[in-house]
Amino acid sequence: MEIQEKVIFEEELDVNFLNDIKKASLCEEIDRCIQCGTCTSSCPNAEYMDYSPRKIIAMIKGGFKDQVLKSFTPWLCSSCYNCQVRCPSKIKITDIMYALKRKAIAENVYPVRFPIAVMDKEMDKILTTSGRSSELWLMLNLFLKTLNPLGLLKMAPLGLNLLKTGRLSLKKESIKNKKQLRKLLKSVKGGT
């Protein structure tokens, strides 16, 4: 095994990163982290993450903006809120993960072909235009955007089963008053 030394120099760190994250809603308590690791031990997906939730918190506080925003960790958070209800310092860790996802998307540094990030963006698009989500169209867009036609093919048997049991709608769902919703969303645009 080759041992590589990873050094990050102080000038590569972003001193404003912590404050940026704290500005997002429900993220202000992050300073109180005691690095106990309860979050990581409560996380069902920690083993798949490149940095554990505990490390991510420490890295936010340390200003490791680049590493944190490019990390897979936020995208592997399935929003189960286990860490959040257990954190002894009452830090809203799941909400911090959301803030990181938003920031990574806003700064266009999210893992590009990672399906979750793409799906979130596609679903957001669908419901901004129609007001309701349509699973079939969401999946189609997702596989197109992630350049994964094989994935679509693999989903075909499931799609058929869902059709057979009446659980897949082919039409694009939509609300009646789309105009009202669009006006609302246009007026609140710009928040991350």
Partner: peptide, 8 residues
């Protein structure tokens, strides 16, 4: 999904 894109 939307929570991951835009808080407002």
């Amino acid at each position: 999904a939307t929570m991951s894109v835009d808080e407002k």
